[in-house]
Every structure is written in structure tokens, then in C-alpha cells.
């Protein structure tokens, strides 16, 4: 029987939400949470003998310690394959799945497979090192993902030949595999061209890498600069007047700062559903450092402050939406002569 160790986060283990995101790794016998879907997909060819779960914040904030603790657990069990996730579009979880899988592959030489959504930052970071099955952006995609994860895990365990990314469903980058197309290249190229001319969908066989990089802006003279604060940490006026969503935000807010003498817990809260909100709700300045910026202005350390701050929830938010928010915010900032931005993320 093929032995599998499965890694999941505290949420999928049923331990708790963001308030438990700082728990260290634990190992338990048998399958837990999404392991049930994998178990069904294995159809008796493999068994999840142990599940390791760890808080997402714990892993992200203590990567070296967490991964060492997890490696020790895995070494005791000696699985044939290690599976992590899938993480879908959860950023910290994707980072943890990618990071621990890569470390297990390198240090223990055990084959690994994980899964996540293509926009998960963990995908860009690890797809060249490990097999990452491309999944949908939410847990609703588990039904599609489980058979692909299971199939690839079984092949790896049995030492079978792994097909090309397009056949197995992993993200291109990890392996280059030759295979024969049924149609010759000239025919495929002409068909693609005809589809393009007639406005029909077509899929390129050689996507250009997407290096969306922006050149660094010139340094500023802080003494004369006009500052603004932008945050993806979801700090909103108490009551969240525009009802910014706790995840997959469809909008951003533009708000005047509250009186800095007011108790922050009475004037701000966070709309963000992707981290434990207790600390930001107690004191929004932990995410929106307006108090410090205002002191700088009074002391003459900086030029001036734009009167409003911009906020959204960077939790599963689509890249194209974030880019649109950014463009709109940039226009507003430029119109007011802002040339320096403090952008905080949780």
C-alpha cells in the first residue's frame, strides 16, 4: 500500500479560523478534511496514513522553524508521497504548501505534489521546483482537483513516467516532456491563425512569460513630499459603510481619517476576512499608521498628508480587480499632488 502524508492548514483541519492561524504543526493519524476527497480518488491504491496541519500565519511568520518541525514529523512516518493542500487562492496557505513541498522534495527526497489557483503567489514562487496542480480559486474546485492530485501522486509513488503539464494538469515549469501531437505544426499554426482572424478562441502553444514589473520610482525628498496611505488590510470606518467584502473584494474605499484623539476601536475596524481581526479592531493604527504619519507632519519631518486613505481587502482578490483599483487610486493621488505612498499589507 502506498503511504501518503497530507499537509493542510488549521482551517481545513477543522481546528479554527484566523484566531487559530498561529498554531504550530500537529500530526494526526489518518485523513482529515480535504483528505477524504483524496482518499476517494485513490480508490484503495494509496492511504493517507497521517495528516499534518499547521496554522497559516505560524508557517508564514516562522518558516524555518515550522518547516524543520514538519520535516521531523514526516521523517518518522517515511511516506511514499507527500501531498500539500490544495490551497486554492489562499495566499499564506499557498506559500506554506509550496514551501514545505519544496523542502520535503529536497531534504527527504520524497516525491511531492500540491495544488493551487494560478494567481496564488505560491504558484509563481514554486511552480518551477515542484508539481503544482492548477485548481480553481475556491474550495468548490476540490472535486476537479482531487482526481488530478491523486493520479499524479500515484504515478510519482509508483515511479511511472509523468506526462506533460497539459496532460497531467500541473502548472508548466517543473518538467519539460516531449510528446507527439496528432496534427503537424504547420496545420496547427494555420488553424490558430484562422481562429484568431475570425475572432474565435484559440490557445497558444507558447505563452510568453508574464513579467509584470514596474521600474522603481525615483527617490523622493520626504521633507517636501505629499504622502498618502493605502492598505490591503481592510481598515474601514467603524460599521464598514460601503460593505467592502471580507474576501474577493469587488471595490475599494476612500475615506477621511478619523480624529486621531479618538479611541481607535470606536472609529475603525477591519473588513478583512483573511487574518485574525482582533488586533486591528482594537487599534486600526496597527495596519493604518496615520498616527505616526501625522506626528511626522507636525514635526516637519515630512511635507504634507493627502486627506484621505484608500483601503481594500487583499484576500483572494483577483489580480485584474486589484489592478483596476490601483489605477483609479493612482489617478486620485496624482490629482492631489501625492508623490509618496505607504502601502501596508496584512
Amino acid at each position: 500500500m502506498i503511504k501518503i502524508v497530507h499537509y493542510i492548514n488549521q482551517f481545513y483541519a477543522g481546528v479554527g479560523g484566523e484566531e487559530k492561524a498561529d498554531i504550530g504543526p500537529h500530526m494526526q493519524e489518518g485523513a482529515m478534511g480535504p483528505g477524504a476527497a483524496l482518499k476517494a480518488a485513490f480508490g484503495g491504491d494509496a492511504e493517507i496514513t497521517h495528516t499534518i496541519y499547521c496554522g497559516d500565519s505560524y508557517y508564514a511568520e516562522n518558516t524555518e522553524k515550522a518547516s524543520a518541525e514538519i520535516l521531523e514529523m514526516i521523517q518518522k512516518v517515511k511516506p511514499d508521497v507527500f501531498i500539500a493542500g490544495p490551497a486554492f487562492n489562499a495566499g499564506r496557505y499557498g506559500l506554506a504548501c509550496g514551501s514545505i513541498s519544496k523542502i520535503v522534495q529536497e531534504k527527504l527526497e520524497i516525491p511531492v505534489v500540491t495544488g493551487m489557483y494560478q494567481e496564488n503567489p505560491g504558484a509563481e514562487m514554486y511552480k518551477d521546483s515542484i508539481y503544482i496542480i492548477a485548481t480553481k480559486d475556491s474550495a468548490a474546485g476540490m472535486r476537479d482537483a482531487a482526481p488530478k492530485l491523486a493520479k499524479l501522486a500515484l504515478k510519482l509513488a509508483k515511479g511511472e513516467k509523468i506526462g506533460a503539464s497539459i496532460e497531467e494538469g500541473y502548472m508548466p515549469g517543473k518538467a519539460r516532456v516531449n510528446f507527439f501531437e496528432e496534427k503537424r505544426g504547420s496545420r496547427r499554426a494555420v488553424e490558430m491563425l484562422l481562429a484568431k482572424i475570425s475572432g474565435k478562441p484559440f490557445v497558444t502553444e507558447f505563452p510568453m512569460p508574464d513579467f509584470d514589473r514596474v521600474a522603481p520610482a525615483a527617490a523622493i525628498d520626504v521633507k517636501t513630499a505629499r504622502f498618502a496611505i493605502v492598505t490591503s488590510g481592510g481598515i474601514v470606518p467603524k460599521g464598514n459603510p460601503d460593505r467592502i467584502e471580507s474576501s474577493s473584494a469587488s471595490k475599494y474605499g476612500e475615506y477621511a481619517y478619523a480624529d486621531v484623539n479618538a479611541d481607535p476601536s470606536t472609529v475603525y475596524e477591519t473588513a478583512h476576512g483573511g487574518y485574525d481581526p482582533v488586533y486591528a479592531n482594537q487599534n486600526g493604527y496597527r495596519v493604518l499608521p496615520y498616527d505616526t504619519l501625522l506626528n511626522y507632519e507636525k514635526e516637519g519631518k515630512i511635507g504634507s498628508i493627502h486627506g484621505k486613505y484608500y483601503t481594500t481587502v487583499g484576500n483572494g482578490t483577483a489580480v485584474k480587480d486589484s489592478a483596476k483599483f490601483g489605477q483609479e487610486i493612482a489617478e486620485k493621488l496624482l490629482a492631489d499632488g501625492v508623490n509618496a505612498v505607504i502601502l501596508t499589507s496584512t
Binding site: A60, E61, G91, R92, L95, P121, M125, D212, V214, P216, A217, A218, A219, I220, A225, V230, P289, A323, F325, G326, Q327, I329, A330, E331, L333, L334, V338, N339, A340, V341, I342, L343, T344, S345, T346
Partner: peptide, 19 residues
Amino acid sequence: KEIERAGIAVVHVCTITPI
């Protein structure tokens, strides 16, 4: 990136610097 693309200097204050 959109803010920086507009020519405004941005500093990103965040915990998970690899992201």
C-alpha cells in the same frame, strides 16, 4: 504597481516579504 506605474514612489510595508 499601478500606483508606482503612475510615477508615485511606493513603499510596501508587509510581513511576508517573499510574496
